[in-house]
Amino acid sequence: MKKRRERIDRGIKVRAGDVFALCSWREVLYLAGPKLLPIIGCLILPLLLNAYWQKVFLSVAVFALLAISWDLLAQTGMISLGQALFYGMGAYVSGILNHYWGLHPFITIPVAAILGGIICTLLLLPVLRLRGIYFSMVTLIIPLMLVRLIEATRIFGGTEGLSGMTPLPSKWLELYLIVLVLLCALFGFRRMLSSDFGLVLKGINDNDRSVMNAGINIYLFKTQALFIASAIGAFTGAFMTHVYMFVGMPVFALDYSILPIAAAIVGGPGSLAGATLGAFILVPLSEILRGIGGLRIVFYGLFLVVFIVALPEGIFHYIQRKYHRFERWVEVD
């Protein structure tokens, strides 16, 4: 009786990467495992953590969403250096709605997500006509200028910000709301990107001429992608406003731009799961490294350079490759 090694996924994959033939529960598990793991993990994790780490978990989820939003844009060919714009816009919109009109968080959060998304989209609309780095330049400077604007004009609380927001009813609602949104965003947008709509978006990044040549208005598609991404970002901002019960100038800080990019790059650009994974690695890491203070940001900078130059595929793609190469011994006659 001779034995040889065989890839586990042989026999499962039929023709292409997306057609499978499943014969046993083990094979089902092999395919579903990678998807079930984050779902179960996200649902159970909040129960196991103490109060401090639950807060960290919240910001992990928030940064994961911002990283997903960044990656969505990057896959459409728009490299944002200003996720803080989306975050801050959502934060301020919900803060204003709650502070001045006393609206309930359940109203302010969705309204801020949509309204914030619309405002950001309108602000960035003119740049969509240009490709390449214009988008990066404009997204980088707009949030930093908005900070000055608030500082100078003292609108919306000026430097002090607005405080005393209505918190969400309970801690568990906070945790599971953000988990739910994260999972929906992760799997929903993954599905969207593999649909024909997503293919068009990726096509714009790859070869916009050819997409235009198919009679497709690429600006319309870019606008849609931008709206989706900025609405996700605005949602996180609005959510955190009610968690912190405060909104102020720090919401436009560079941190909200850099950490999501670092998460997406480290996790694996071009895949939403990678962006999420990156956030789950980097945010707790930066919590542990809180002791070294400002040096953390230096490390983020270096992380960005090292990963983009030396490991451009990111952690997720590496794990994915290894996972598909699992082998087992089979008997041959």
């Binding site: 490299i79 850099i258 990019i261 650009p269 040096l295 230096v298 900078g301 270096l302 983009i308």
Partner: peptide
């Protein structure tokens, strides 16, 4: 473009924050 932007931005960030 993506890599160029991120790499230069990362270098700048590291220098300034250091």
């Amino acid at each position: 473009v993506l890599s160029e932007v991120i790499a230069t931005f990362g270098i700048g960030l590291a220098i300034l924050e250091l």
